[in-house]
């Protein structure tokens, strides 16, 4: 049973960075990607993230499931936009360079294509870097570094535990859904939505109940071993901030600054090559 995505332990410079530095960088990076529709910037970000992927030794195969899922959503999103608003690009850029006409109001314009390109690039700017973060961040180390940058340790630990249990819960879900399928509960697309929701409940209720059992055990185990005794705690996996961490945060700041400067120069979020 293959997990959908979680921490993959391979030695690489990206793995060596502290989780907090990576998180800050990720947040700044995402703000940068979200704030602008400047195609030049949106080309730089995916190129950069694929370079980071190469450095991190995480292979595309490792995240193929979620990547495929993203591509499907992306294609769907683009199709729907074109379907409902084929002239969206024209409205944004204020010009109309017609390439060819499909039928009626479905006229393909350069503006619309640029808009779609930007949209695709936005997906490519954000999703891979989020996956990279999850795959290269050791949950315990992440908790330690969250605590270091000021997050209360109980919250930091909760985050780490949640990350840790993702694979476990995936496995449980898999097992329960198999046993329930045997009883005739099917999640196939042939069924109506209501029936599928009901079917989902038949899997989720046992999943939640057995998870609750585990939560009670783990919280007792934690308390019995002194969790919450003091206001502070130390971390076995804690790492000091190093040069690489500052570089990562610096990169994030740089990217966000670049995006903001470009928005200013473009006089808005859109870069318009048509005028």
């Amino acid at each position: 049973m293959k997990g959908i995505f979680n921490y993959i332990d391979r030695p690489s410079p990206i793995h060596e960075l502290t989780g907090a530095a990576k998180l800050v960088c990720l947040l700044l990076w995402s703000f940068a990607a979200m704030s602008t529709y400047d195609t030049r910037m949106l080309i730089v970000l995916p190129v950069l993230s694929f370079m980071l992927f190469a450095v991190s030794k995480i292979r595309l195969r490792d995240v193929s499931f979620i990547l495929t899922f993203t591509v499907v959503i992306m294609v769907l999103n683009n199709l729907l936009i074109f379907l409902f608003s084929p002239q969206h690009g024209v409205q944004i850029y204020g010009t109309k360079h017609v390439l060819f006409t499909i039928t009626g109001r479905y006229v393909v314009t350069q503006e619309q294509l640029l808009y779609h390109l930007n949209l695709v690039l936005k997906y490519l700017s954000t999703i891979p870097i989020v996956l990279l973060f999850v795959c290269t961040t050791n949950p315990s180390e992440f908790a330690a570094s969250l605590n270091r940058i000021g997050v209360p340790y109980s919250i930091a630990y909760a985050v780490a535990l949640a990350l840790r249990y993702i694979p476990d819960i995936q496995m449980q879900y898999h097992e329960i859904s198999q046993a329930q399928q045997a009883r005739g509960i099917e999640m196939s697309r042939k069924e109506s939505l209501i029936k599928r929701l009901r079917a989902a409940a038949a899997i989720l209720v046992p999943l939640i109940l057995s998870s609750m059992d585990r939560i009670e055990v783990i919280s007792n185990a934690m308390e019995l071993r002194g969790f919450g005794k003091h206001k502070k705690r130390t971390w076995y996996m804690g790492r000091p901030f190093r040069a690489g961490d500052f570089a990562a945060v610096g990169l994030g700041i740089l990217l966000l600054a670049a995006a903001l400067v470009l928005n200013h120069l473009n006089g808005g979020r859109f870069w318009n090559p048509f005028v």
Partner: peptide, 12 residues
């Protein structure tokens, strides 16, 4: 028929 170990894994 297949019966899982813990009833909590089956009862919905």
């Amino acid at each position: 028929g297949y019966v899982m170990q813990s009833p909590n894994q089956m009862i919905s």
